[in-house]
Amino acid sequence: MIIDETELKAMREKTNRHLRLRELLLDHSRQANLIVMTLPIPRKGGVSAPLYMAWLECLTRDMPPFMLVRGNQTSVLTFYS
């Protein structure tokens, strides 16, 4: 699928935010053995799948191993015996 030009213009600010996040990841995590980050969750109907996947590709390309984690907005405490 191709990213629509009008969507790309409409999402320019969010795209720039993802690019800035990549810069910060490169500055602070380039030598990491593993990067764990919360998966950016798109709003339903807010962004197309191709653009969302492009953002994820931008964040993770040529980086150390990356684990994107998604929660369900519920706090969880785990106790080990």
Rank of each mutant, 00 (worst) to 15 (best):
23 E>Y: 08
9 K>M: 05
29 S>M: 09
76 V>P: 07
75 S>T: 13
39 L>S: 00
47 V>S: 05
12 R>W: 13
10 A>G: 03
27 D>Y: 01
20 R>S: 12
35 I>Q: 07
14 K>G: 08
8 L>P: 03
57 E>K: 10
9 K>P: 04
51 L>Q: 04
13 E>S: 15
43 R>E: 11
73 Q>L: 11
78 T>R: 04
6 T>C: 05
49 A>Q: 13
26 L>I: 03
70 R>W: 10
1 M>K: 14
68 L>N: 10
59 L>D: 10
36 V>A: 00
42 P>C: 02
52 Y>V: 02
34 L>H: 09
17 R>A: 15
39 L>P: 07
69 V>F: 01
34 L>N: 03
15 T>V: 12
54 A>Y: 15
65 P>T: 13
57 E>T: 13
45 G>C: 10
37 M>I: 05
28 H>T: 01
41 I>A: 14
28 H>Q: 02
34 L>V: 02
78 T>N: 05
53 M>S: 14
79 F>V: 11
52 Y>M: 11
15 T>Q: 08
37 M>S: 04
62 D>T: 12
47 V>D: 05
11 M>I: 03
35 I>M: 05
18 H>A: 11
41 I>Y: 09
10 A>D: 08
74 T>V: 14
64 P>C: 05
31 Q>P: 07
47 V>I: 15
25 L>H: 01
65 P>V: 12
37 M>P: 01
69 V>R: 05
62 D>L: 13
36 V>Y: 04
36 V>T: 09
33 N>C: 08
45 G>A: 03
67 M>V: 03
3 I>C: 14
72 N>T: 02
36 V>R: 08
25 L>R: 00
69 V>T: 06
39 L>E: 09
24 L>R: 07
31 Q>T: 14
49 A>C: 12
63 M>K: 13
73 Q>S: 12
57 E>C: 10
21 L>S: 00
66 F>R: 06
62 D>N: 15
53 M>V: 13
68 L>S: 00
21 L>N: 03
20 R>K: 13
52 Y>A: 04
24 L>A: 05
35 I>H: 09
25 L>N: 01
47 V>A: 05
16 N>R: 14
37 M>R: 04
42 P>V: 00
66 F>E: 06
32 A>I: 05
58 C>V: 10
72 N>Q: 04
38 T>Q: 00
70 R>E: 15
22 R>D: 01
45 G>M: 01
26 L>S: 02
50 P>E: 08
69 V>A: 10
66 F>G: 00
19 L>E: 10
53 M>Q: 15
70 R>F: 02
55 W>G: 04
22 R>S: 03
38 T>E: 11
38 T>S: 02
59 L>S: 08
22 R>T: 03
1 M>C: 15
71 G>D: 08
